[in-house]
Design a protein around this nucleic acid. Structure first.
Length: 271
DNA sequence: CAACGGACCTGCCTGC
DNA sequence: TGCAGGCAGGTCCGTT
């Protein structure tokens, strides 16, 4: 999936194409993704207008009259706006069909994505209620990372990927930010000092900001809402570069597993 | 609580 | 060529 920059790129891509549109019907081709779709989804959504497309963490919020559609792209989700007459391809699981003859099509091969409906404030939804601050929010700071990490023994990399601490940092950008901040990803979160957490905060922002500006990184199969791939849009300095030279010192980039996720680092530049 | 492993899925790549 | 095994951008849930 999409980490935060890819979700934000998707949001910017679809917002002008779906805001103000009225849903006339919903086509589902599977019973659900990560969870079953809400029962009577078509009846719930028909006639509603999408006012805005917002993002909270890696969730997209399609705010409608009377409620909000909550989408998560999981690992492999894509959204595109097409004509409903375009034949659906493999893993095109859901179409929201609009009154003007276009539709928002949700493709997700691994089906780790989600589509939920709430008539309440989405911020209060159980999946969103416990999320930490956005990386660019002033509530996210080196002080926060330092304070919440005291006494914690798990590695700093899974710590910054914990969406309760801050949102938006996934597996790629965690390795990238820790490299830029010079912090060993395996170091216990509770043994990283305030100065280094300030540096890490800046590195997280730099990496995410560069990726958003480039229209989403990434590798492999990410594409934006018009199907344009984001490949090589930004230069990854460590992720996926096992055995290749560190861009700072030339030593071979190493790979290890932390919290069941591949982690890339330079053992000379990171401590 | 915090931390960890398993689970959910499909596709792609590697190596035998 | 075929097949088993491992790995992939996420995150919830149950168990220690």
């Amino acid at each position: 999936m999409p980490e935060l920059p890819e979700v934000e790129t998707t949001r910017r891509g679809i917002a002008p194409l779906v805001e103000g549109k009225t849903i006339v019907s919903v086509v589902t081709r599977v019973v659900g993704l990560r969870w079953p779709f809400p029962p009577h989804l078509g009846a719930i959504l028909a006639g509603r207008t999408i006012y805005t497309v917002e993002r909270r963490a890696k969730y997209l919020l399609l705010r409608c009259d009377g409620g909000t559609l909550i989408l998560h792209l999981g690992m492999t989700g894509h959204l595109r706006v097409v004509s409903p007459r375009v034949p659906p391809g493999c893993h095109d699981h859901v179409d929201l069909v609009f009154a003007d003859g276009s539709c928002l099509r949700f493709n997700d091969s691994r089906r780790f994505g989600a589509l939920l409906w709430t008539s309440d404030d989405p911020a209060l939804h159980p999946l969103l209620a416990g999320l930490g601050p956005e990386p660019f929010d002033e509530a996210m700071s080196g002080e926060r990372l330092y304070r919440l990490s005291r006494g914690r023994k798990n590695a700093v990399k899974p710590y910054i990927m914990d969406q309760r601490i801050l949102v938006g940092v996934g597996n790629i950008y965690a390795s990238e930010a820790l490299f830029r901040a010079g912090i060993d990803p395996a170091r216990a979160a509770g043994r990283v000092g305030l100065v280094r957490y300030r540096r890490l905060t800046a590195a997280i922002r730099e990496v995410l900001d560069a990726a958003i500006a480039a229209g989403g990184t990434t590798i492999r199969d990410f594409s934006d809402s018009e199907g344009r791939p984001g490949y090589f849009a930004i230069q990854l300095q460590v992720y996926g570069r096992t055995g290749e030279p560190c861009l700072h010192c030339g030593e071979a980039i190493r790979q290890r597993r932390l919290g069941q996720r591949s982690t890339y680092f330079c053992r000379f530049c990171q401590h």
